[in-house]
Amino acid sequence: MASYSTNQFKPGLKIMLDGDPCNIVENEMVKPGKGQAFNRVKVRNLLTGRTIERTFKSGDSVEGADIVDVEMQYLYSDGSEWHFMNPTTFEQLQTNAQVMGDAAQWLKGQEMCSLTLFNGAPIAVTPPNFVVLRITQTDPGVRGDTATGGTKPATMETGAVVRVPLFIEEGSLLKIDTRTGEYVSRAKEE
């Protein structure tokens, strides 16, 4: 993997720090007094999600991280592994519950997801921004309570629990924003 000099630092650059791939979030040049220049960077560890600050001597080099984002189709889960396929090459990849994280609760199969690969192995899965799922369980709404803005929990076919308006009934199809986990609207039957 190529290495990057501090003068190539910019938000979005992927570098290796302490053996982990990290994403530069902010990069600031500082030059105290009449002294040495430094690059103060805020980086997010792509494995742990933690954001840390580091300071480099300007002109130093850092190893780049082999990070790529690929679009792959979710196929199925066997309970311990989640299987994805590249729809052009038919190449398949598997990943586990830890990497899936919150993404797993939105997927039933066929969805196109964005997989972040580190040295070819998935480290993060991003589901589509919007998914359409059916409610498998929710308590009956209170009649006439359509406009008060109250909500209730609803369990979706994938197991995800979403707050929905009181008038929404069991069996309905809903459009959900996976970035916030919030109900967007009712969806039409296909």
């Binding site: 500082v30 105290p32 007094g33 002294g35 040495q36 430094f38 103060r40 300071t55 001597k57």
Partner: peptide
């Protein structure tokens, strides 16, 4: 000198 410059940058 470099380490003292870094210290100064933190003070700044």
């Amino acid at each position: 000198v470099l380490l003292l410059d870094f210290l100064l940058s933190e003070v700044v």
